[in-house]
């Protein structure tokens, strides 16, 4: 579904991603592991086409076609969606009015219940949300948007234990079940804590460091390695 080849990306001429190769087949869920500042968020933002990232080399293929020159909303319409790490707050724009604008109003109440967000329908998006509420809302936003390639940026950080299972299950369900047109989905999840691995069965993990993918392999094994030896290439 997603294929990234030799991708190098800069911000203000400073390299933030270097020579990235990554293949995410249809139906798979991968996790990205890596220290702060290693470029994980930059990679997701570049896939979606958010500023200020500039691609200086390489390409991004979605369903076999290059997308790196497409504008943001065109990529979103092809079926790419991102649950933000730190979304902006939109004063006056309620969760309901947003759901109506993306044509998901009829599903809002049911999907919100699964993430314990029923009380949030009349709230302004991200305004006064706690850290954990933001994460739950971002997952709900993606579920409503119904993309085929689901990108999650640290979806579990700041989420209390009571809700982390619901968030994990919602992510697993969203990636593992087909979209509303019946097509298979894929997911790429940034995880800092690895907590999410207890709730979603990931197919593969990638370790990022200094803007590069150091190593890829079995998620549980790599996570265990990181916990003992840090973000390095296993022997």
């Amino acid at each position: 579904m997603l294929e990234i080849r030799n991708l190098t990306v800069t911000i203000d001429d400073v390299e933030v991603l270097a020579d990235i190769d990554l293949t995410l087949p249809e139906g798979e869920l991968h996790v990205l592991l890596g220290p702060n500042g290693s470029g994980k968020s930059s990679l997701l933002a570049t896939i979606l086409g958010l500023p200020p990232y500039r691609i200086v080399a390489g390409e991004i293929l979605f369903d076999g076609a290059p997308i790196q020159t497409l504008p943001l909303e065109a990529r979103a319409r092809l079926g790419i969606g991102l649950a933000y790490q730190r979304p902006p707050s939109l004063e006056g724009v309620t969760v309901s009015s947003f759901a109506a604008a993306i044509g998901a109003w009829d599903r809002l109440e049911r999907e919100a219940a699964a993430l314990d967000l029923t009380a949030f329908l009349d709230r302004d998006m991200n305004v006064g949300f706690s850290g954990g509420e933001i994460k739950r809302w971002e997952v709900l936003k993606l579920v409503l948007q119904d993309p085929r390639l689901l990108l999650f940026d640290e979806p579990e950080s700041g989420v209390d234990l009571e809700h982390v299972i619901a968030v994990g299950e919602a992510i697993a369900h969203a990636v593992r079940s087909p979209d509303r047109k019946g097509r298979a989905c894929s997911g790429l999840v940034i995880t800092h804590t690895g907590l999410i691995l207890n709730h979603v069965k990931a197919d593969r993990a990638h370790i990022m460091k200094d803007g590069r993918i150091l190593h890829s392999g079995d998620p549980q094994a790599l996570f265990a390695h990181i916990q003992t030896d840090g973000y390095s290439v296993p022997a």
Binding site: L48, P51, L72, E73, A76, L82, L90, A101, I102
Partner: peptide, 10 residues
Amino acid sequence: KLDYLMATGL
């Protein structure tokens, strides 16, 4: 904010 909304396909 505009990008955030457009990133959902609007």
